[in-house]
């Protein structure tokens, strides 16, 4: 077997893929070699289960929801075609705009903070501390609690007027407000809750950090690079595919956040819709008010928004993401 060349010769510019996020090159031109044909067949073989799942389990619900978004459907009747009616209704629906605003705030604030903590802790824990596996598991614990009712109950207690957060604030002389009752502040406990789940992307970052070849660092040390330089010029580029992944996934997850708001606000999105996540509004529209046509339209608008955000992230990543394995 040929020896693997070490990566000193690989540079950022030389390896960036031509299209952001797209698979590394495609078969271009009419040259269908036998090898290429075998490759394609094998690929479809490997993709077989996914394609089957796509057609059978994913496509139908997705297409059905698209169709329903153009109808007036309330579960048990027949769908009534109304064209763009639902979408027009959205434009004039104050709760729709409110939920967009709430979700946007939630995403814009909690996602960067979450990713920041994840990366920070991953780097801190990757230094070979002896208790590292223990710390890593411990930091991961909050993410294990997912849609836990128990945690949501405790979270409400934490942010109650007589709760711990206000007690701590009292130590530094700040009079704590009524977090859960003040529409201006009620989103904050939820954002904090989201940030505490940084353990999940952190674990992924850790796995990625582990894959960065040590010789790169050694070579850089020989060249006299200090820790910050190593971070910016070696670590970040090497794990950039994973940074992109974590960013996209965390964004998509935050846009679709549901359970925490549902439980902490008791399903209301209160007080006064200040914690009305978009998906919570969607849920209420469909499941409480049986307005499935409108709910489907809401879902598709969310999909378009998420797609736009994701696409811009991918395009923006063009300059920053470096796929080490792709060779020309």
């Amino acid at each position: 077997m040929t020896e693997v060349r070490t990566d000193r010769t690989l540079s950022r510019e030389g390896q960036a893929p031509s299209r952001p996020g797209a698979p590394a090159g495609e078969v271009r031109g009419p040259k269908w070699t036998k090898m290429a044909k075998r490759d394609a067949l094998a690929a479809y073989g490997f993709l077989g289960p996914w394609i089957l799942g796509l057609l059978a389990i994913t496509a139908f619900p997705i297409l059905a929801s698209l169709y329903l978004s153009f109808t007036n459907y309330s579960a048990g009747g027949t769908p009534d075609w109304i064209g763009l009616g639902n979408y027009q209704r959205m434009l004039e629906d104050p709760r729709f705009w409110k939920s967009l605003q709430v979700t946007a705030t939630y995403v814009l604030v909690s996602v960067p903070v979450l990713l920041g903590f994840a990366l920070l802790l991953a780097v801190a824990l990757n230094t070979g501390l002896r208790l590292m596996p223990l710390y890593r598991s411990a930091y991961y614990l909050p993410s294990l609690l997912g849609g836990s009712v128990a945690l949501a109950v405790l979270w409400r207690r934490l942010f109650a007027q007589e709760g711990l957060v206000n007690d701590v604030l009292g130590w530094i002389g700040v009079v704590g407000p009524a977090w859960l009752s003040d529409p201006a502040l009620a989103l904050i406990p939820l954002m904090v809750l989201n940030v505490t789940t940084f353990g999940a992307p952190m674990v992924i970052f850790l796995a990625a950090l582990r894959q960065v070849p040590q010789e790169l660092y050694d070579a850089a040390a020989v060249d006299g690079a200090g820790a910050p330089r190593k971070f910016w010029s070696i670590t970040l580029p090497q794990i950039s595919p994973v940074v992109l992944f974590n960013a996209v996934i965390t964004l998509i997850g935050a846009f679709q956040a549901f359970t925490s708001a549902y439980i902490v606000s008791g399903g209301t999105g209160g007080p006064v819709d200040s914690t009305l996540f978009y998906t919570l509004y969607l849920y209420q529209t469909g499941f409480n008010y049986f307005d499935f046509g409108y709910a489907s339209a809401l879902a598709w608008v969310l999909l378009v928004i998420i797609a736009a955000v994701t696409a811009s992230t991918f395009i923006g990543s063009r300059r920053f993401v470096f796929y080490g394995g792709d060779s020309r």
Binding site: E26, D39, A40, A43, I252, Q256, L282, Y283, A299
Partner: peptide
């Protein structure tokens, strides 16, 4: 692997991530 339709299928795969679950329910 390389195969025709790769880019489209990849985009579709990413797309399936984005639809809120409650509506597929």
């Amino acid at each position: 692997l390389e195969f025709p339709g790769k880019r489209i299928l990849f985009a579709i795969m990413i797309g399936t991530l984005m639809l809120p679950y409650h509506v597929q329910l």
